[in-house]
Design a protein around this nucleic acid. Structure first.
Length: 567
RNA sequence: UGGGGUGUCGCCAAGUUGGUAAGGCACAAGGUUUUGAUCCUUGCAUUCGUAGGUUCGAGUCCUGCCACCCCAGCCA
């Protein structure tokens, strides 16, 4: 299971505001409702991977229970066997525990199939449910429209005996898929379409991943969910706004069967995040059409993708708390997510050096085979992160971005004829460049000032400090940089097909070099490559002999802003 | 045109019984700095979708209007 450091308990921090759901629960607990107990559930359908929108729901449902000393069930809403699988359920368990939450028990809606069936027979006996033998198309046509009432099915007044007989024969497999359906008898003229005799059982001759071939009829969501909640003794059933119009049905079912627990359903708005898609359908397509590297592609907003990208559980939980919980539509900026992971990693990631776009630098007056071991801090402020040995040699790699043949004063990096400090090392001066036939710079020749280790040269100021890596004492590494998967901030809201909105430059792969110490890096670590950003080992593709790093997020880059403005 | 929701700074979001607009992100300007990072300081809604009304006083109460979102799966 998870080896993630979850030391920072962001939930305990009181500088963030409450939300309307907590307010409701606080009042209920104070009033002694449900004996003051809080029991919640997180009920995903195991038909895909969890994403950051689910993380919001997870933090809420698990978080509320935890806060009020209650418990949470992880319940797989597995009523549609043709779309679900054990593999998806397993991935969800992994993601939830990685996020840092514990469930009381894992349940499946299918655990309740027997009870659900009994309640259905009772509903039939009470003349509150009937078997409809119309086709799906006929039922749709009879449902009416948003503005017009529906019409009663010709089968609506079958006798209890007939309904019971038909329903049992449905269960026993006497009919083909779609031949009959069990419907609640509520009101075909209800202004709420969900109350117009909703179907609660359909025939599906498919094997179920939990119950095998035991059933060929499966209950539908509206009927299953509220009863499952009730059976588990859930006190507060939190779900997204999409189910708001279903609440009357949720309540109707529980009011019309014999149960002694009637949970309160409370809806909140789902998360919309810039530059990505959140619908399960689209996420699934991206994966199945091989537009991304699986469900855990680092560019995806899936929890698995964010994990592989290098996000921490702490940052994700902090993010969920910062976005709040309301009923209003929201469009959260990517900048907030990035800010949250930077804040976490700033205080936890050891600093190290890596060169993303290498260009060779030769120090002409530094002895060819000389090696000086520099003792450098792993963090500029946190001594607790210790120190490491860094080899300094006559040849190094620096980033192409850090050198220009000429530049104005604003450019604080290496310029021909100018001086700059190699971080933690000496001050060097660029003397000349060597170019290939195409005119590209392939090597920078420079000299160093031996009297500048750990102290500034006297009487002159160097332009700045740049990072580097010893050419003879480093490891080559593949370094993957990511940008948003989409070119528009809210592809889901666009009229265009999202395929046409994909960013062809969402991933760039560089062959770079990292310092020696990184060969020991493990998948659970994150590092700051100084002046570049935060990186982690790619859990899927990195090998000891061929390291692969993912950039979690870049450092805040005010220079880029200045450059952009200047032109 | 039915029903259910939502509208407070560029984004997110506090704002319990009416008393004179929190905070975070972003942005801007300074300071520190061997990461153009971090950190620190400062600035950033006379105004709460809108028009009226009640009141000494309204983001909070009342009325009308406008905008946006969700619902017509034998999906969840």
């Amino acid at each position: 299971m998870s080896t993630e450091p979850n030391s920072t308990d962001v939930e305990d921090d009181e500088k963030y505001p409450s939300n309307f759901i907590r307010t409701i629960i606080e009042k209920d607990v104070a009033a002694g409702k449900n004996s003051g107990q809080v029991v919640t559930r997180f009920p995903p359908e195991p038909n895909g991977f969890l994403h950051i929108g689910h993380a919001k729901a997870i933090c809420l449902s698990f978080g509320m229970a935890k806060e009020f000393a209650g418990t949470t069930y992880l319940r797989f809403d597995d009523t549609n066997p043709s779309k679900e699988s054990i593999e998806f359920a397993d991935s969800m368990k992994e993601d939830i525990s990685w996020l840092g939450f514990e469930w009381l028990e894992v349940r499946n809606a299918s655990d309740y199939f027997d009870q659900l069936y009994e309640f259905a027979e009772q509903l039939i006996e009470d003349a509150k449910a009937y078997v409809d033998s119309q086709s799906a198309d006929e039922i749709r046509a009879m449902r009416g429209s948003l503005t017009d009432a529906g019409k009663n099915s010709p089968y609506r007044d079958r006798t209890v005996a007939e309904n019971l007989d038909l329903f049992r024969r449905m269960r026993d497999g006497e009919f083909a898929d779609g031949e009959h359906v069990l419907r609640l008898k509520i009101d075909m003229a209800s202004p709420n379409i969900n109350m117009r005799d909703p179907a609660i059982y359909r025939i599906r001759h498919v094997k179920h991943h939990q119950t095998g071939d035991k059933w060929c009829i499966y209950p539908l969501y509206d009927y299953t969910h509220c009863i499952s909640d009730s059976l588990e003794g859930i006190t507060h059933s939190l779900c997204d706004l999409g189910f708001e119009a279903h609440r009357p049905l949720y309540d109707w079912v529980l009011d019309n069967i014999k149960v002694n627990c009637h949970p309160q359903q409370i809806e909140f708005s789902r998360l919309n995040l810039q530059y990505t898609v959140m619908s399960k359908r689209k996420l699934k397509q991206l994966v199945e059409e091989n537009l991304v590297d699986g469900w855990d592609d680092p560019r995806l907003p899936t929890i698995a993708g964010l994990r592989r990208r290098g996000y921490t559980p702490t940052a994700l939980r902090d993010f969920c708390r910062r976005i709040g919980v309301t009923k209003s539509d929201n469009n959260v900026e990517l900048a907030l997510l990035q800010s949250v992971i930077r804040e976490d990693l700033e205080d936890t990631a050891p600093r190290v050096m890596g060169v993303v776009n290498p260009i060779k630098l030769v120090i002409e007056n530094y002895a060819l085979d000389k090696v000086e071991m520099l003792t450098v801090a792993n963090h500029p402020k946190l001594e607790s992160l210790g120190t490491r040995q860094l080899p300094f040699t006559g040849e190094a790699y620096i980033d192409r971005e850090d050198f220009r043949e000429e530049a104005n004063r604003k450019y604080k990096r290496l310029v021909l004829g100018g001086e700059v400090r190699l971080r933690y090392g000496y001050v060097i001066k660029a003397e000349k460049v060597i170019k290939n036939d195409a005119g590209e710079i392939i090597e920078i020749r420079c000299t160093y000032d031996p009297d500048t280790l750990g102290k500034n040269p006297e009487g002159r100021k160097v332009r700045g400090v740049i990072h580097w890596v010893s050419a003879s004492r480093c490891h080559p590494a593949e370094i993957r940089l990511f940008d948003p998967l989409f070119t528009v901030d809210f592809p889901d809201a666009s009229d265009q097909d999202y395929h046409d909105l994909m960013n062809p430059g969402s991933i760039t792969i560089n062959q770079g070099f990292v310092e020696e110490s990184l060969s020991e890096a493990s998948v659970s670590e994150r590092f700051q490559f100084e002046r570049e950003g935060y990186f982690c080992i790619d859990s899927k593709d990195s090998r000891r002999e061929q390291l692969v790093f993912n950039r979690v997020v870049g450092l805040r880059d005010t220079w880029a802003k200045i450059e952009q403005k200047t032109g």
